[in-house]
Design a protein around this nucleic acid. Structure first.
Lengths: 350, 350
DNA sequence: TTGAAAGCGCTAACAT
DNA sequence: ATGTTAGCGCTTTCAA
């Protein structure tokens, strides 16, 4: 028994036609006699033929694969051990946000029979590896989710002329398409909710200063609070992690023990906020109302469940994949930016 | 300016040698004059050459890619909408276990310049897609993590003669390599800890009956408790989720309000156990000691931090990747099974 | 509408 | 030690 996978040639022989005709049928090109199409299809069935990806890719110069890159800003000063990389992967997956990104990307790609290659780019070597990978034609382009504002990868990608789409607008402009959220509006929604509940003393745990989204959420929140008659809003900076939320809330509570409402710039930090509040004997939402951001899975599992500003991450991720697809297929040549609107999801915490 | 990527031919011309020589240098084959090696390397540098993956793959019949498949047991009776798929992805990523698997896999793969393609196989169509993908030569093999004991994918893979390695021994034997944990010993470790703390009334929240690992953990726990003089241990079945842990503990507490120690078959459920306990006014560990399983990230973030039976998931995942690599390279022809030992990690909950 | 034939860029015999 | 050459399986002009 020959363990060789059947080729176009085999199918052609079986169907009594030429390779070219089989190719046309396989690729759904018109101009093929319906009767012959059937013959070919039967032959394909009988031989168990599956087109060879490498051969096809060699001539079409397309791979039907995209890289999904989770990118940091490691500068290579630390060691790039396997340990460190594991830690990076663990951190990434610990954030429920990323699972939603994957869900959205896969949702778009799968109907097109393509699947994402997962790459981490947290060090200079890892970034070079991403570039090498794309240049070798392992994938047609990259979907990049940066975990850090100083991430150099987008610029490298743009420079190399490799198709890529970013999640969130990069701090320094880069000639790449991206999707983003109207963060200012998200901050506004949080403020409106707290205002509507009658909270007078409010505080906020922001994301890292360096992240543009943090600033916009904060601005939207503050501007709206000011317009509502509360010009001063104490802020503590967090790092989008549970621990940083805990620390920030402890700090806030020390200086403003009379706080009645808190807006945390993501759900993970909001969870930390709730923990601290409970430990200090404050009830949520009776004593202190808490609004989170993202509407991630922790929003639902948190005690109490979090009222949160929903970021339609799945839709945004799917949009990234669509943009990349358009770029790769040459349907789109100029970088585009797609903006999504947030939405308030009311649960128990506020 | 020609936007064509440089080929071997270009490098050869630049270096004044033949394509074959350049190929040898690129692939690190000996028998090449050191001086010429340098010439070639310079030429590669100057041209910015990167080997074309498709062309290489076409002749070597290897892709340097592996599929990382997260597999369920969907039977296609429900709708396989994008929504459902998103939900599956979200559920998978909500479990910190999976992040560790990815970390371990990437840790092994990356030094070899290969990267995993992420696939979900929760429906019959998705499973066929995995088979198709592998048969087309998109990847050399699959690393399969099943979320359900009745997962039909392993058998399909084995039948098709596609290289694959499983996480955990499948319920019905399949001719594929796998890695696994000595679950019985894990249950024993949990029991020993509770026994050592002097807990007399203990209960356990098990994993789903259908999962072999659940039964083994339970058996190890019960046998050891019995040997320690506690032949009867109440059990409530959980589903490895936070909610199921909450429900199971509520049930247990209703029937056994005097419980002093609880072993939950994973950390997520242990977290649910702690939540219920706290809500019912029981302090952990003072009133009730709780031991989790996995030592996942929630073990550390849980309040209180969980004492847990550590499963070396990263190492196990890396071992999967290694096994697959050996199978693909033909270094290993018979299915193998690699067993790992658990370890107790003591924190505050017990 | 169909077939013949020329490559895509690379590796691996084989020849030198 | 190096070069020559024959494909790998597919798509795609170009003819018929």
């Amino acid at each position: 028994m020959n363990r060789h996978a059947p080729t176009l040639e085999d199918v052609a022989r079986e169907a009594g036609v030429s390779r070219a005709t089989v190719s046309r049928v396989v690729n759904g090109v018109r101009n093929v006699d319906p009767a012959i199409q059937d013959q070919v299809r039967v032959a394909i069935e009988r031989t168990g033929y599956a087109p060879n990806r490498a051969a096809r890719s060699l001539v079409t110069r397309r791979t039907g694969t995209v890289a999904l890159v989770v990118s940091g800003a490691g500068d290579g000063t630390g060691d790039t051990s396997e340990e460190e990389q594991n830690a990076f992967a663990a951190r990434v997956f610990a954030d429920p946000f990323f699972g939603r990104v994957v869900g959205g990307v896969v949702g778009f790609l799968r109907p097109r029979s393509t699947h994402p290659v997962l790459m981490f780019a947290e060090s200079p070597e890892a970034r070079q590896e991403v570039l090498r990978y794309l240049r070798q034609g392992n994938a047609d382009g990259a979907l990049v989710v940066s975990t850090h504002p100083d991430d150099p990868l987008p610029a490298l990608l743009a420079e190399a002329g490799l198709p890529a789409v970013l999640f969130a607008r990069p701090v320094r402009p880069v000639a790449l398409s991206h999707v983003d959220l109207a963060h200012w509006d998200g901050g506004r929604l949080a403020a409106e909710r707290l205002l509507a509940r009658g909270c007078r003393k409010v505080a906020t745990v922001s994301g890292p200063w360096a992240v543009a989204a943090s600033q916009e959420r904060l601005a939207g929140f503050r501007d709206t609070m000011a317009r509502g008659g509360h010009p001063y809003v104490p802020v503590a900076e967090g790092g989008f992690t549970l621990d940083s939320g805990v620390a920030a809330m402890a700090e806030l509570l020390a200086e403003h023990p009379d706080v009645e409402g808190v807006f945390a710039a993501n759900d993970l930090m909001a969870q930390g906020v709730c923990q601290v509040l409970r430990e200090r004997g404050r009830r949520v939402p009776d004593d202190v109302a808490v609004v989170g951001f993202d509407d991630s899975s922790v929003a639902a599992t948190c005690r109490p469940p979090l009222t949160s500003v929903r970021q339609p991450v799945e839709d945004m991720a799917a949009a990234m994949a669509r943009l990349l697809d358009e770029h790769v297929r040459g349907l789109r040549t100029e970088p585009a930016s797609v903006l999504f609107e947030p939405e308030l999801v009311v649960r128990e915490s506020a």
